[in-house]
Structures are given as C-alpha cells and as structure tokens.
Design a protein around this nucleic acid. Structure first.
Lengths: 201, 201
DNA sequence: TGACATACAGACCGACCGGTCTGTATATTC
DNA sequence: GAATATACAGACCGGTCGGTCTGTATGTCA
C-alpha cells in the first residue's frame, strides 16, 4: 500500500463514518471517539486530513453525500427514460435503505440541517448548497420531461420537502407507511403535471 | 405567590425553555446550563420537577408543543369554516414564526425526531404520538371538508411531510422561498381533492 | 544514504456535560 | 409551634467532549 492509497483510504473511511453517523444520529450526538472507532483510525488521522476538525469532516461528508445522490439520479436517468419512474425508483431506494437499517438511516443532510445554528456558517453553506443541488437535479429531471422550468423548480422543492418530511415521520414511527403514502401522492401529483400522455399510476 | 403557583411557573418556564431550544438547536446541542439560564432556574428546580432529567423534560416539551399546535388548529377551524383556509393560515403562521426568528425557530419535534435513536424509547414514543396527533388533526380537518377518510389520512401525512421538509430547507437557505413554494403546491393539490366547489387558488 | 515530507499514533488537556446530593426557605397540617 | 412536605439552590462529581501536540514509521527524492 503506497502513500497516496493509504491516505485516500483513511480519508474515505473517515468521510464514510461521518456520513453514516449523520444519517443515524446527527452531528452533535456523535462523539469523536465513536466516529474514530467506526473509521478504524486514531485521532491523529482525523486532524491530519481535516485540520479544522469535526465540522470540516462533516462538511466533506455532506458534499460527498450530495455528489453521490446526484450521481445516482443521473445514473437512473440514463437507465430509465421515463422521468416519473426515475423519481419513483429514487424514492423506493430511500425506502429500502431505511427499512434495511431498522429505520435508522435517513438523509445525511437533514439532521445536520436542523441542528445547525446561524453561527455554523460553513456548515450551513454546505447544507444550503447540498439542498440546492438536489433541487436542481430533480428540477432538471422534470424540466426534461416537459414541465415548464419555473414549475419544475417548484415541484422539485416540493419533492425534496416531501422526501425529507416523510423520512422523518417513518423514522420515529418505525414503519414505512408514511413514506409510502407521501411518495404515492407526490408521484400522482407530478404525473398530472406531465404534458399529455397516459401515465397510469 | 403560593406554593402551587410557584411550582407551575418554574415547571412551565422549564418546558418553554426546552421547547424553544428544541426548535432552535435540537436536543443534544443544548446543554443544561444554557437551558437553565433561559428558564431562570438553577439545577435543583429541574431535577425536582423532572427527576428523570433532560429527556423527561424534552418529552414534556414535545407533548406540550403538540397540544398547542392541535389547539391552534382547532381554534382556526372555529374561526374559519373553509378548511383549505385553515391549512393556509396554519402554514402562514409557521412561515411568520420562522422569519421573525431569523430562520431559527422551526418545528419542536423535527430535530429531536432525527437525532433520536432506537434506544431513546420514551422519547421516540412521544415523538411518534406527536406526529400521529398532528396527522390526525389535519386528517379530521380534511375529512370534515368532505374528503374520503382514507384519502384524508394520506393527504394529512403528505401535509406534515411537506411542512417539515419545507421548514428544513428554508432554515438552511435563510429565506422563505422553499416554504412558500411547497405551501402553494400543497394547497393547490388539496384544493383539487375537495368535493366540487369553486376554490380559486 | 541522508534530508525531508507525508501519514498517522495516541498521550494529554481544559472545558463542559448530565446528574447527584446536601442544604435551606417556605407553606401546610396537626 | 412542632412536624412534615414542597420547592427550590447550588456545590460537587466522574465522565466525556473536541482539540492539541509530540513522537514515529514509512515512503520519496537528491
């Protein structure tokens, strides 16, 4: 294992551990000790790769997560021409992830978004950018499906809202009913917005 | 100030301080010290009224918040016969609260819901009940407006989802656009569900 | 092969965490 | 007015927090 490989590994392990923790517990509940244990690295490694500490790592984890989601949406879009199906697959994926983790693993941005205060400037910026990218990805999807640009933007915002709120409710309830209900109605609504073509939902 | 009055005051100040903190920072970010300072009471008072500590106080704050929201919805319902207007007023109220607090004050349940883990049994139960009551209040509203019971349930779930997700996005963005867009589309959708009557939105 | 840089490794630190426990002031009851 | 209960008040505590700092092992390059 050469220098650069080892470095990338530790760094990525740290980012993955933080992403995981953000999904399950959020930013403040997770101590460095459990984080480092999960990443299998001692403290020196963290402060070597992220001299600004825990917050910098969280920002990196958020950016990494957003990039992954965007890539996933793009991938689905290539596989599946029907935009409504892309959305459906994406939401189904989220449901599966939630269920398979005993309703612990939600969105890596959501908890940090609610925990953050006005003082956490860099963190908030990363979160705002992240949500912005998500909305943009979805808006582009709807735009390409023939929905007017401005309307597509608004529907993308509603989609992110519904997605986040549904995950929240499903999480505390310990079942997927809320997530499924939300998903179904959201897809129904968006179907009706598509330019005339029979989309039986 | 007699015995019982003093007691109620301290207890209520504690609950209010916790509600406030849950909205602004969540459960873990808030230390007891800042909480007690906000409630203007020393540590003894907290552990007198809530022998099980911080968590018990949080549960009380959550239950209190849900009761307040339910009461508010009921009040609006009495003032305003049009159910779609009740919903609109409720969402407008949330937007005002968020803006007037420089985008810090969101939902008192949301952050705790995402921070909680499977081990926080009592807290999760309180949160699940809380969200349940909220959905029920909204479902009853829609039900009375003539929407079929099951459909009303689903729309209520979507409403809560959209509400929570929109608050989250608006919070990190530092503006109300996301909340307004979400609200508008949600109300539009629900309007279409109402039994035939001209509801120009 | 010696100089230097990278990548950890982990002992150590002060601050703050939630929680306990003893003390006291006030009200109530007999 | 003595006994008891309620409602705080805050000193104190062990543990954990995020963060720093020194040490070392391992390439990399001249």
């Amino acid at each position: 294992m050469n220098k650069s490989t080892a470095s990338v590994c530790t760094r990525e392990r740290l980012i993955n551990a933080m992403s995981d923790t953000l999904q399950c517990k959020g930013f403040h509940a997770a101590g460095l000790s459990s984080l480092l244990e999960k990443a299998q690295t001692p403290k020196g490694g963290l402060y070597h790769h992220f001299p600004q500490g825990k917050t910098a790592l969280a920002i990196a984890a958020i950016e990494n997560s957003v990039a992954r989601i965007s890539a996933q949406l793009e991938y689905l879009q290539q596989q599946q021409p029907e935009p409504i199906m892309v959305l459906q697959l994406w939401l189904a994926e989220a449901e599966k992830r939630l269920e398979q983790s005993q309703f612990e693993r939600g969105c890596p941005l959501a908890t940090a978004a609610l925990e953050s205060t006005a003082e956490d400037i860099a963190l908030r910026q990363a979160l705002a950018n992240g949500f912005g990218q998500l909305r943009q990805s979805l808006a582009r999807l709807l735009d390409q499906a023939g929905i007017a640009s401005e309307r597509a933007q608004q529907l993308a915002t509603l989609s992110v809202s519904a997605y986040e709120g549904a995950l929240m409710q499903a999480r505390v309830a310990g079942n997927s009913i809320m997530l499924r209900d939300t998903t179904r109605l959201l897809l129904e609504l968006i179907s009706r917005e598509l330019p005339a073509q029979d989309t039986t939902v």
